[in-house]
Amino acid sequence: MTFSAWISEPINWIFLLVGLVVLASGFRVVTAKNVVHAALLLVAALAGTAGLFLMLAAEFVAWVLVLVYIGAVIVLFLFGIMITRAPTGQDEGLDSEKKVVPALLSVGVFVLMAWGSIDAFGTTLVGATGDPISTELIGESLLGRFVIPFEVVSFVLLAALIGSITLARKDLTPIEEEEGRRV
């Protein structure tokens, strides 16, 4: 498939648009000098991802992504940023100085994965296979074949709930006790 054939499909224009948003905001998430901006850019990246999911016949997962991530997880992150009193303005000290090796490594990972994708799947077409996968099917799958993993995951969530409460409960540390006395 030539590039001109590819670009002549309108759906690919949408893909290019959404993909660029995802990539740009994803890149800014790991490079932004402002912590709050990084968190908010993750929202943009995830929203773009949800759009990609809609293109890929995954309506239910797309909306789950929006609800769970953008609705809850990001809020949790913002809480975390506020509570740990991370510097919310511009900050040059957010990244470590050694950037060359990480950059080389991530480029290596990208090259390897991209080469692998093209090598294995070449021009396999998406979307020729039919309708979106219905929520009904996912529900039946979750409560049928995957019912035991589903229950296990619910236990994991419960454990995470209890664990985070236990961890984050306010026990005064020696430092804080000392400070409290001084104040």
């Binding site: 990480p102 990972v109 692998g116």
Partner: peptide
């Protein structure tokens, strides 16, 4: 920790290259 993580990623990369 990040040095360990970098070694981990590098090791994984090398292994993939070796296997492929």
């Amino acid at each position: 920790v990040q040095q360990y993580a970098a070694s981990f990623v590098a090791g994984a990369l090398i292994l993939v290259v070796v296997f492929v």
